[in-house]
Structure formats: structure tokens, C-alpha cells
């Protein structure tokens, strides 16, 4: 469709951990799949992430978490979005997040979780489907 804007996605790596291989690979794969990707870089706080998301006018935020801090970080991001009255930004995630925690995350509104070994094409397909 003429004039349709590219999907804008923010990829972020919250927490102290610096293992950014996965986040960067996903960022590039989504870019190659035709999306506009903003990579927020390392050591981002939930507030910084939400602010960037607003400033950059993104449709989705992807959080990469390998440190086990997912149960703290996702709820923080979700509640910050709520506080700002934002309901149209999808939050999804990846990294070492046990399946047993997926239910909790999804119940607070997280869209989908992509564990290690996920195919990047599936991530792109998912985003095109839901956005």
C-alpha cells in the first residue's frame, strides 16, 4: 500500500548483563525483514526504555533478558506503559526465560516469548501478524 509506514520496533537490553549477541541478531533480522529497528543499547532501565519507545513512536518493544531478571523487568515496563496511558505498544521478549514463567508474563500483557534457538523468521512473522 502506498505510503504505508514501515513497522517501527525498539529492541532493548535491560539490566546489568552485557550479552547482546541475541538482541543484535534479532535487531538485524527484523531490519532485514523490512522493519525500522531502533536498538537501545546496553544497561537500559525500564524508564529509559519506555521513554525511548514513546520518543521513537514505535509499535513494539522487544526485551532481551538473559540474567533471570525477567520477572522484575517486564512488570516494570508494563506498569510504566500503563502509567503513561499507552496501550498500543506491544511488548515481547526473548532470552533465557523459563516456560513456567511465560504464563505470568503473558497475564500482565506481554505478547510472546522467544527462547534460545528461536528462528528469527518466526519473530518477524509474528510481528507482521499481530501489528
Amino acid at each position: 500500500m502506498a505510503g504505508e509506514r514501515k513497522k517501527r520496533i525498539l529492541i532493548a537490553k535491560p539490566g546489568l548483563d552485557g550479552h547482546d549477541r541475541g538482541a543484535k541478531v534479532v535487531a538485524r533480522a527484523l531490519r532485514n525483514a523490512g522493519m525500522e529497528v531502533i536498538y537501545a543499547g546496553l544497561h537500559q532501565t525500564p524508564l529509559q526504555i519506555v521513554n525511548t519507545a514513546v520518543d521513537e513512536d514505535v509499535e513494539a518493544i522487544g526485551l532481551s533478558i538473559l540474567s533471570g531478571a525477567h520477572k522484575t523487568i517486564f512488570p516494570k515496563v508494563m506498569s510504566l506503559l500503563k502509567q503513561k496511558g499507552i496501550s498500543d505498544i506491544l511488548v515481547f521478549g526473548g532470552g533465557t526465560i523459563p516456560k513456567k514463567d511465560w504464563g505470568i508474563l503473558k497475564s500482565i500483557g506481554v505478547g510472546e516469548i522467544f527462547p534460545p534457538g528461536s528462528d528469527t523468521r518466526e519473530i518477524a512473522a509474528y510481528l507482521y501478524k499481530v501489528l
Binding site: 546489568l16 548483563d17 533471570g68 531478571a69
Partner: peptide
């Protein structure tokens, strides 16, 4: 652990939830 790696003491606010991590 992650706080030590990042040069933070266990009582640093940035360390919360990560003491003894990984």
C-alpha cells in the same frame, strides 16, 4: 555475581535483585 562484575556493592540500588546472580 552481576553487581560485583559491574563494580557495585550488594547494597547499591542498582544491585537489587541481582546479588548472587548467575
Amino acid at each position: 555475581d552481576m553487581p560485583t562484575i559491574m563494580g557495585r556493592d550488594s547494597d547499591d540500588p542498582m544491585s537489587e535483585g541481582e546479588v548472587g546472580s548467575c
